[in-house]
């Protein structure tokens, strides 16, 4: 590594602003997801304050929807913890994949930027790092954009959610899927990666069908990772 290039882990204010700006388009779609959550929360009987507080403190859409499924006059604690943990366990893997760069940060910043990690900003940050560009602006600035959008959307959904009749018929449920796929396709591609992804996909499907609910992401990701560790690239 040369001394002229800025270090990849650098977290300057302009990088954070730039990350915020770059995640704005996808944040607009996150607002729509948030609206769907706010609407569902209102229909489940959560108060406005509770729903917005949940989005603010939890900031993990799929697990929040799952919590609504468990909601009633009583909420079972252990199933709630298991469900939330299993759905969000991919964050563990995201933190691990970012670690080679995170370890260069002071501890407070290291854990600070991870407060807002989610699928979209993590994928953008990893892609930047893999291209030799700084990624923590995308992770943190982009994370703040997504977080704000999620809270705003949840609030809008509580008040105006009924205005969106059927988001699925407009394809809006596919936004995150298409985004993540674009990140996969835009990444490094060769026969080795393709075989690793195939193993990850097959393992994920097997887990989806035959293992406990919500285990498929972790199983698929670990299977792909282990194959990558066993079948290493030639060192350049």
């Amino acid at each position: 590594m040369s001394n002229v290039e800025p270090p990849l882990h650098e977290l300057k204010r302009e990088y954070i602003y730039d990350g915020f700006r770059q995640l704005m388009p996808i944040s607009l779609f996150v607002i729509v997801f948030g609206v769907a959550f706010g609407l569902a929360a209102a229909q489940t009987g959560l108060s406005d304050t509770s729903a917005v507080l949940m989005s603010t403190l939890v900031f993990a859409g799929a697990s929040q929807f799952a919590a609504l499924d468990l909601w009633g006059e009583q909420v079972p604690v252990v199933p709630l913890i298991i469900t939330v943990f299993a759905i969000n366990a991919r964050h563990l893997l995201m933190g691990a994949t970012l670690y080679p760069w995170l370890r260069e940060l002071p501890v407070a910043r290291r854990y600070g930027v991870m407060l807002v990690v989610s699928d979209a900003n993590w994928a953008m940050a990893m892609q930047a790092f893999n291209r030799g560009k700084p990624g923590f602006g995308l992770l943190f600035g982009g994370g703040i954009a997504l977080w704000a959008a999620w809270i705003l959307g949840s609030w809008l959904g509580l008040h105006f959610g009924s205005a969106i009749q059927n988001p699925v018929s407009f394809g809006l449920d596919m936004v995150m899927g298409c985004f993540l796929l674009a990140m996969v396709v835009g990444g490094k591609k060769n026969l080795r990666m393709f075989i690793i992804w195939t193993v990850a996909a097959c393992s994920s499907l097997m887990a989806y069908w035959y293992l406990p609910a919500n285990s498929h992401v972790v199983v698929g990701a670990l299977a792909g990772g282990m194959l990558g560790a066993l079948w290493m690239e030639e060192k350049q």
Binding site: D119, A123, A200, G220, A221
Partner: peptide, 12 residues
Amino acid sequence: AMSGSVLVAVLA
């Protein structure tokens, strides 16, 4: 390998 596999495992 795991970072791409996370996404693939979500998508499959």
